[in-house]
Amino acid sequence: MTATLSPPRQGHTRFARAGFLMRVRELGIVLAIVLVFVAATSVNPAFARLDSVQQLLIGASIIALMGVGETMVILTRNYDLSIGSILGLSAYVIGMTFRAHPGTPIVLGFLIGIALGAAIGAINGWITTALRVPSLVVTLAMLYVIRGVDGVIVNGSIIGSDVVPRSFQAVGFATLFGIPWMAIIVVVVVAVAAYSLRSFRWARDLYAIGSSPEAADLAGIPAGRRVFTAFVVSGALAGLAGALFLALYAQIDVNGGTGYEFLVIAAVVVGGVAIFGGSGTVAGAALGAFLLNTINQALVATRISAFWNQAIAGALLLAAIAFDQWLKSRMTTKLQLEKGALREQSSD
């Protein structure tokens, strides 16, 4: 029987090869970053100075860090809109701890932020999976709930640089061989996450759930548990981001982190994570954050009105989504044509 097989169809294999498109996408972002960098430097040479480049890295760090968690959530076809609020609350609670107990070890400050974020993420994940409420609604509600709680706790007061320990602030400005510590922390997190998402079964489940929820059910994937985990990680990283935020700015008020959820989602989507889940990488998301921040600072350096920044970020977002949709529809069309051709051939 096996001797009479039809010749294999191998067309477009290289094109469709896993990871190939992703790499093209990520190279495209790197190229865009380089172009923006070169253009900005040619107008204002100061843009290429060491401290300026350090600012580029620091500025992208917090968004890139939250982008890791958001990527994991979006991969499963869910959304976490509460991360900006988590950042704000986390920073404030850490600040309060330092004010109340000035001797608190700085590591404990970080741990408090992470634990707080993870706890809120667990609530998000539990409501989404156990009660089957769309995560968009759950986390939008959580965004406001936390902001409200934050307001009550803060009660108009501001945590200032006087209560934030100098050693904690150092995380925001100190460097190692010229590389800001913040950037190192974020790069480590991104690297660990990138490796994990490629290498572990539970992580591949995240892609499967977002790629086809029905097929995931049929394959017996514990979707609820995986989505829950993704929300916990997203919350924990937002909590960590709160600690970094406090370290960087050395102050926090009730508005800290407002609107960050949309900056993060924009960065993630520009970085190639499909908005309907199933594909994308944390490295891409981090590059997306870096690109948006580079554009932002390039506009400042070239004295172009900062209002352009938002317009450009929005346009990039649209371009990224349009590109993804175009690619998908192209592949689907190809599939249908192929199917039709086969049918013609077989009915002869």
Binding site: F200, A215, L218, A274, G278
Partner: peptide
């Protein structure tokens, strides 16, 4: 009922992928 975003091999072995040290 395939996962369009995953590779052919991953589709075959989803949830049962061969693992090495450290799972």
């Amino acid at each position: 009922t395939l996962f369009p975003d995953l590779t052919v091999a991953e589709n075959i072995f989803m949830g049962r992928q061969p693992v090495r040290a450290g799972r």
